[in-house]
């Protein structure tokens, strides 16, 4: 079962490291820790006048699932405001089986995590950090 967790698409997302790094002079920045496992995500964002993300970067000290999620989120975050990010969080929640419905890309990659409840917070931690940065 766990071999299936680390399917090629999740590994590829993590290795792509989309958005990995820091921003110079971000508009906002937020860090989130998972106290249970010690994973840590820092999100830097720049916003336009309407509160939409114009640039995003993330630093992850965490597992492959957390890295993959941060990369997937970074790939689709630009142009979205807080409501838009909240909207795509539903895709992640659907992919991991916490909500009904079909997730949009690229979050379908996280479907194997539905069978691993103890790892689902790893996928959601980047969303929590970005939510803090936007609030």
């Amino acid at each position: 079962m766990n071999d299936q967790l680390y399917q090629d698409r999740i590994v590829a997302l993590a290795k792509a490291k989309t958005g990995a790094g820091k921003l110079d002079a971000p508009t906002r920045s937020a860090r989130r820790d998972n106290p249970l496992c010690g994973d840590r995500v820092t999100m830097d964002i720049k916003l336009d006048g309407q509160g939409r993300i114009t640039e995003i970067a993330h630093q992850v000290r965490g597992c492959l699932l957390c890295q993959a999620s941060a990369a997937a989120l970074s790939a689709v975050a630009v142009g979205r405001d807080a409501a838009g990010i909240s909207d795509i969080r539903h895709d992640a929640e659907r992919a991991i089986g916490r909500e009904a419905g079909d997730p949009r890309e690229p979050f379908t990659a996280f479907a194997p995590v539905a069978a691993h409840k103890s790892r689902q917070e790893c996928v959601l931690l980047p969303f929590e950090a970005l939510k803090d940065a936007l609030s």
Binding site: N2, L5, Y6, D39, C63, L64, Q67, R119
Partner: peptide
Amino acid sequence: VHPHDVAQTLDS
């Protein structure tokens, strides 16, 4: 490889 990913692989 993050320790959690090592442990998850070991579970398999």
